[in-house]
């Protein structure tokens, strides 16, 4: 029991950071699941973060209200931004979003009245584990419902083949607009989460480090199911701490190495519904074969248009 308490004392902050990173990863997943690669999550997080910091440090509002405000601010920003971004071809959209991350940093540095400028902002309160957990559970519930709704089905179609989805009457623009809106709200909440766990935020909080964590978590956990980014964020956040207690010397390279290994051997991430279904199908075929020997020829046809490498994955 005592050991458990010790463990919790040592690692509860890691758990909170993991939850905060989950929001950031989920925000990226929200657009990725509709076929958009965008780094705008970092921008929404910055807006949410400084919004929350102002609401808490400036207006003295409680954390939960600040997180809500941050979500709304992120949502508003994404709704304004989406129509501009959706005019661009996918790869240009990714580049434009990267440019926007750079611009955001400059804006944050040059708006000291809102963001503290180069000095950053102190946030006088720290969020409890329970409160963060409740927020994450709420957001996860939203993603769960989305996954099992018409929106979920439509995003999967748009991601796999937007022009085919369109001939089914699915408006790619509309689906991707909604995806941006969700990404904005969740990104804003994640940014606020960073503010109330780090307790100090500046232009650098919402920059390359956060972007790297976001991409790594999503790639690691997988972007084909909402549970993937959460799993990825937890592993990716816990990794440095674990490494430190096991082999401190390789702590610095561990993140990069794990990411490379995952990308090479598990390109679709740890949580992959398709791989699970394929394994199940293979098992069923095997039992069928075992029971009544060569009854039917195997149907291992590869979907045309997919490379054999992808079909194997």
């Amino acid at each position: 029991m005592e050991m458990l308490l010790d463990f919790w004392a040592a690692y509860s902050s890691t758990v909170v950071f993991a939850m905060v990173n989950s929001f950031i990863a989920l925000s990226m997943y929200a657009v990725l699941s509709a076929g958009i690669l965008s780094f705008t999550t970092i921008v929404f997080a910055a807006i949410g973060g400084f919004m929350a910091a102002q609401m808490i440090a400036g207006a003295g509002l409680p954390i939960s209200v600040a997180i809500m405000g941050a979500g709304l601010a992120g949502l508003a920003a994404s709704v304004l931004l989406a129509p501009l971004f959706l005019r661009l071809e996918t790869h240009w959209m990714a580049l434009a979003s990267l440019a926007l991350v750079l611009i955001t940093r400059v804006v944050v540095l040059n708006a000291p009245a809102l963001t503290g400028g180069v000095n950053g902002m102190l946030v006088p309160v720290r969020v409890g584990v329970m409160e963060m957990a409740i927020w994450l559970a709420l957001v996860a519930l939203v993603f769960y419902r989305l996954h099992h709704s018409w929106y979920g089905l439509a995003t999967r179609a748009v991601r796999e083949d937007p022009s085919v989805a369109a001939t089914m009457g699915i408006s790619t623009w509309r689906i991707q607009f909604i995806a941006f809106a969700i990404s904005g709200a969740v990104g804003g909440i994640g940014g606020a989460g960073m503010a109330v766990t780090l307790q100090f935020i500046s232009a650098d909080t919402y920059f390359l480090g956060a972007a790297f964590t976001m991409i790594a978590s999503t790639v690691l956990g997988g972007s084909f199911h909402w549970f993937g980014p959460i799993v990825g964020a937890f592993i990716f956040t816990a990794l440095p701490t674990l490494m430190q207690s096991i082999v401190p010397s390789i702590q610095d390279v561990a993140k990069g190495v794990v990411l490379l290994v995952i990308m090479i051997y598990l390109p679709r991430g740890l949580v992959d519904p398709r791989a699970r279904k394929l394994r199940k199908a293979a098992r069923e075929r095997q039992t069928l074969r075992d029971h009544h020997a060569p009854l039917e020829p195997s149907h291992d046809t590869i979907l045309p248009g997919k490379t054999s490498k992808e079909a194997k994955a």
Binding site: R156, E160, D161, V164, P273, K277, P304, G305
Partner: peptide, 10 residues
Amino acid sequence: YQNVRLFSGM
């Protein structure tokens, strides 16, 4: 479609 275009993973 001439060259079947089903959605992968569904």
